[in-house]
Nucleic acid binder design. Sequence first.
RNA 1: GGGGCCAUCGUCUAGUGGUUAGGACACUAGGUUUUCAUCCUAGCAACAGGGGUUCGAUUCCCCUUGGCCCUACCA
Length: 496
Amino acid sequence: MIKTRFAPSPTGYLHVGGLRTALYCYLFAKKNKGKFVLRIEDTDQERFVEGATENLIKTMKWCGMDYDEGPHADASETGDCGPYIQSKRTDLYKKYADELMEKGRAYRCFCSKERLDEMREAQTKNKQAPMYDRKCCDLPESEIQKKLDAGKPFVIRQKIPYELIKFKDLIRGNVQFHGKTIDDQVLVKSDGFPTYHLANVVDDHLMKITHVIRGEEWLPSTPKHIALYQAFGWEIPEFAHLPLLLNPDKTKLSKRQGHVAVEEYINEGYLREAILNFVAFLGWNPGSGEEKEIFSLEDLEELFSIEKVHKAGAVFNLEKLDWFNWQWRRKKFEDEVDNDQEKRHQKLYELCKQHLTEGQMQNEELLKKALFTVQEKILQNPKEASAHIDFYFKLPHYEKELLTHEKMKVDLNQAKVSIEESKKSLENLEKWTEETIKESLTQIVEKLEVKNGQVFWPIRAALSGLQFSPGVFEIAFVLGKEETINRLNHAIKKTT
RNA sequence: GGGGCCAUCGUCUAGUGGUUAGGACACUAGGUUUUCAUCCUAGCAACAGGGGUUCGAUUCCCCUUGGCCCUACCA
């Protein structure tokens, strides 16, 4: 039975890089009919953040990535190796650290921070790799006991074997490190908490994780973990190190260069489908010439394969995210409204109601029609809906030059003629629909023997007071006959 | 300094021992019975460099260069 795990440390939010890792772990498990575990790696007491774990779980759920084992909202655990929160398992790690010391694969280190700092400084100065010098490695038993009795604080270090450590990474192939180049890692800190390296290996083993899928930043510490599995005599899981997500300058994706928390994207109005779809394609694609790019989580569960994951890092490109969001928003919208006009109005309203002004909300009839004319813009960015439709409620102040257009050959005189003629024609209109308005204005174009733009532009400008707006027929229709005539009169005054 | 990973358009990428090196985003131009947007069409744009192996390398090997990651009692 294949089993993967996502093991974030609760720093306050879910990082988009973490989301991608979680997604691949989830997809790999689903694809192989295995299980997916969430485990909270909170062994660093100094970095404790209130509510971070709850937040992480909330975001995971929002994304739709359900886990088979892990911390649940009601704090109960499934399986037989919970809790899935490491800070609640400290005794366990202590036991395994002791076992390692008995086997001679770990040792107590009493060196002070000061000594360590000095040592590293000297090593760096001599252009040597800063590494622990194993001063405490072969301390005689009597001396260890003496220090222990004196209550001297200590850490437990892993004794890395000086040999070649090889492993096969599912994404990178054969990788090898020599033990001599690897530092004796601290496994248990002086406060008794384990470090990532110990807790991670112990838990992965106890939880029967078969595939360790994690970020590339862990590649250099994998030999330490392998040495640990070997020291315990445990079966070594498969490893897959994912390429990093990058800033535009190709450095590891960081807070400084934009939003990094999934929550921030949620708050900005990005859909979960879009975020997941986008993130899935950062470092992976279905391959074999597939040109489709829009896939749901369910689709991906079928399609995913770890072999198609890239080796090189991928720049986190917001423009492409926006595009995915646009595709998904439109797709979902069309699916939901199902060609039903009433549903369409309702849905548009729901999408942007939280961003509308009070004045706009009061006139519901006008509002619904208005929203309809800026459908695409709402779908692209619901936040801006209010600004796009405000001219329907109150004609903005504009300069008379707005009624003119050099390229379309509309000067003030032409604008005046066009508007006056149109007004007369519209006034006589009995049925007020987009069709009849269009018909009426088109007749004016023919009558005046001018181009479409020479009539349509000044009218549209007069009705909207804006340089950019929806089309002239729909505006007139939404505004209604009376207001349309009013606005045309207002424009005529400006031209005289 | 040490160790490791990586390298196709600006970005995400497909692809192969012989291809006009394909797609998407972005960008540019034109069209969509007025403008912005949408939509459609077209265009621009890449195999890091040098050696091999080979009839033939973007593809396989080596070197160089470049980028990145790790090098904590953080994960």
